[in-house]
Design a protein around this nucleic acid. Structure first.
Lengths: 143, 143
DNA sequence: GTCAGAATCACACTTTCGGGTGAGGGTAGA
DNA sequence: TCTACCCTCACCCGAAAGTGTGATTCTGAC
C-alpha cells in the first residue's frame, strides 16, 4: 500500500514536470493554443483510462472470479495442507485422466499417484475422485 | 454498435465545444494559463476514467454470463440421443455418487445404472465418468 | 546435525468401473 | 401389427480405483 502511494506520487510529480515542460515549449516555439490544449487533453485522457482501470481492476477480478480468469485459492490450499504434487495430481484428475496416465505425465509410478490421490481424498474429506473434483471446484482450487 | 459510435461522437463534439467555451472564458476573464491547463487536465482525466470503465465494463459482464444463469442445452441432448434416464444418471454421476448409490436413488439395480452409464459414455464419446462429467459441462448439459 | 514433511515406491487386498452380451417388457409411431 | 427405442436386469471378466502398511530419499527449517 505504501509503495502504491509512492508510485502514484512519483507519477504525479512527473506529470507536473511534463506539464511545465510542454508549457515551456509552447512559449518558446509559439505553437497554437489549440494544439497545446489538445495535447494535454489526450495525455490526461490516457492517464485517466489507465488510472481508472488500475483502481477498479482488483474489484473487477473479485466479481468475475467464478467465470473467466480463474485464480487458485492458495490460502485454501495451505489451510487444507495440500502439497504441490498433490495439487498437480488433482488437476490432471479433473481432466479425466486415469491414475496411470497421471503417473506417466508426472514421471512417477502408478503407486505414487495412488498415494497422492489417497492423501488428497483425506484432505478434501471425500471418498472418490469425482467428489474430489466437485469439491475442489467449490473451494476454488480448480476452474 | 452504431448507437455507441453516435454517442461517442456526440460526447466528443460536446467536449470540443466545452474546450472552446473554456478558452473563450480564459481570454475574456484573464485567468492564469496554469489554471486553464489544470482544468482541462482534470476534465480529461475524469473523461478518461469514465471511458475506460465504460469500455471494460461490457467485457466483464459478458465474461460473467456463463457462471450466473445456467440453462440445459436440450438441443444438444437430443442431438446426442441422450435419454431422460441417462441424463438423470449423468447428473448423479457428476455429484460424485457411485453407480450403486445412483441405483439406490433411482430405485433401479446396479446393473441398470451400469448399462445407462455405458450408453452415456458411447454417446458422449468418452471412456470414464470423470471425462463424461467434464464433457457434459463443456456441452452445457450440466452446470 | 536433526527433525518434520514431502515425494517416491512397493505389495496385497477390496471395491468400483466399464465392456460385452443377452434378454424381457413397455410404449409410440409407421 | 411390427418396428424402433427405452428401460430394466443379469452375468462375466478385466481394468481402474482406493485402502493400508511400510520403507527410502530428499529438502528445508530450527
Amino acid at each position: 500500500m505504501k509503495r502504491t502511494i509512492l508510485i502514484y506520487g512519483a507519477v504525479l510529480a512527473v506529470l507536473v514536470f511534463l506539464l511545465k515542460f510542454v508549457e515551456y515549449r509552447y512559449i518558446v516555439r509559439d505553437l497554437s493554443l489549440e494544439f497545446y490544449i489538445g495535447l494535454v487533453a489526450i495525455l490526461f485522457t490516457v492517464i485517466g483510462v489507465w488510472a481508472g482501470l488500475k483502481i477498479t481492476r482488483k474489484k473487477t477480478i473479485m466479481v468475475m472470479q467464478p467465470a473467466a480468469d480463474f485464480k487458485v485459492n492458495e490460502d485454501q490450499l495451505r489451510q487444507l495442507g495440500i502439497s504441490r504434487r498433490e495439487y498437480e495430481v488433482l488437476e490432471l484428475m479433473a481432466r479425466g485422466l486415469t491414475n496411470q496416465e497421471i503417473g506417466d505425465r508426472l514421471f512417477v509410478s502408478l503407486n505414487t499417484v495412488k498415494t497422492h490421490s489417497s492423501n488428497l481424498f483425506v484432505k478434501l474429506d471425500v471418498r472418490r475422485r469425482t467428489q474430489a473434483i466437485q469439491k475442489a471446484k467449490e473451494l476454488h482450487l480448480l476452474p
